[in-house]
């Protein structure tokens, strides 16, 4: 689903994957407040929906939760690893689980950042600012 299309162009295309609509809205809101040009924000509530969107649209930055029904964020990132065409996509984990055990589990999945919920808006701004030159 596409729930927010900004008129600004060029800009980053984001995909926000979280089973909580509130958290997706929060990430979108913070992303739009960063000042980074954002063209489109796609949303998915689990990894399966996210894969469909990835196959249909070019995405610059993927934000994904870990604990989700149907397909977890870890499983989603493993699927992303299988697709050479998605390897330039910036991958950001946004999870309440900030444990060292979880971080080690996902370390091999080429996530560019690991953001713990709750997060301060400046953390998301820093992530997007770092990746903006790549995607814009």
């Amino acid at each position: 689903m596409v729930t927010d299309t900004q008129p600004r162009s060029p800009g980053l295309s984001l995909l926000v994957v979280d089973d909580s609509a509130m958290m997706r809205a929060m990430i979108k809101r913070v992303a739009n407040l960063t000042g980074v040009a954002i063209a489109t924000v796609y949303e998915a509530s689990n990894g399966v929906e996210a894969l469909r969107l990835l196959e249909a649209h070019p995405i610059d930055v993927l934000f994904t939760d870990i604990n989700m029904p149907e397909m977890t964020g870890t499983e989603l990132l493993r699927e992303v690893e299988k697709h050479p065409e998605w390897q330039r996509m910036i991958r950001v984990i946004v999870s309440t689980d900030g444990s060292q055990a979880r971080r080690e589990e996902v370390a091999s999945l080429h996530a560019h950042a690991y953001v713990e919920k709750p997060f301060r808006p400046e953390v998301m701004r820093d992530v997007l600012t770092q990746v903006a030159p790549t995607g814009a």
């Binding site: 909580s20 604990n67 999870s95 309440t96 689980d97 900030g98 444990s99 713990e116 919920k117």
Partner: peptide, 10 residues
């Protein structure tokens, strides 16, 4: 609740 629990465990 998800964030409280995850933060507490982390």
């Amino acid at each position: 609740a998800n964030m409280i629990c995850g933060t507490w465990l982390t």
